[in-house]
């Protein structure tokens, strides 16, 4: 028991890093994903093509490769080369990656709304922006809650990839202690922490779904 308590200090620091990665990525990638989805369905072909290519790149390569690229290779790119500290580099890679996935989820949601909703809005005199903001997106939110919930839970666990930048998140901290003390307990503790986080998320998303269930379609 005493041993577990001494482990808890560094493990909680790890949890802190994991949670920070999670929240900052989520808060930045959701709005970015929404913007990308709107650009993706834009009538202007160059814009939609550009975003389509971007999404293909982000979904077509491993997140770990993107992490390594932003941290190690970005500084070497001529003109735009910047050297980011490890945390910022990780956030940048995660946001770019997750925004691509969220964009596709939002796009699916937007395109699932019947044409009649746009037509009714149009004949009532609403502009495109008013239609999107008041009529389409509120309905999209209801429809995308399940897939967004899925991605969000994946994000909790994907944060463990930042070990490649030698950042001490929950999992890397656990492994360090295991290797030092030849005791598997930190793995169990890490698993419990991940489970607790996803449990909270599942609960939140269930509440959201319940709230949206106020209206059926």
């Amino acid at each position: 028991m005493e041993k577990i308590i001494t482990m808890m200090g560094p493990m909680l620091d790890g949890v802190n890093v994991t949670l920070q990665m999670f929240f900052i990525t989520l808060v930045l990638s959701l709005p970015l994903g929404l913007l990308l989805s709107l650009a993706r369905i834009s009538k202007y072909k160059p814009i939609s093509l550009l975003v389509e290519t971007y999404i293909w790149l982000m979904r077509g390569t491993p997140l770990m490769l993107q992490l390594l690229f932003v941290y190690y290779a970005l500084p070497l790119v001529p003109y735009i080369g910047i050297k980011l500290p490890d945390f910022s580099a990780a956030i940048l890679a995660f946001v770019l990656n997750y925004a691509a996935y969220f964009a596709e989820i939002f796009r699916g949601g937007i395109q699932s709304i019947e044409r009649g909703q746009y037509e009714a809005s149009k004949v009532l005199g609403m502009t495109y922006v008013q239609t999107m903001r008041r009529i389409i997106l509120p309905q999209v939110l209801k429809r995308v809650v399940p897939p967004i919930s899925n991605e969000t839970i994946t994000l909790v666990k994907d944060t463990s990839l930042i070990y490649v930048l030698a950042m001490n998140d929950l999992l890397r901290t656990a492994r360090t202690i295991v290797q030092r003390e030849f005791d598997m307990t930190p793995f169990v503790i890490a698993a419990v922490f991940y489970l607790a986080m996803t449990l909270v998320l599942t609960w939140i998303f269930n509440k959201l779904e319940e709230r949206y269930a106020a209206y059926d379609e």
């Binding site: 009649g116 909703q117 037509e119 004949v123 009532l124 005199g125 209801k142 059926d216």
Partner: peptide, 30 residues
């Protein structure tokens, strides 16, 4: 065009709004 009201075969009410909100949305917004 908003001098012309239109009623559709498929109603096209806004499912996420109550009846009263469906009615007041466009006058308030537009």
């Amino acid at each position: 065009c908003f001098k012309m009201g239109m009623v559709f075969q498929q109603f096209n009410l806004f499912p996420h709004m109550t009846v009263i909100d469906n009615i007041i949305e466009a006058p308030m917004l537009v």
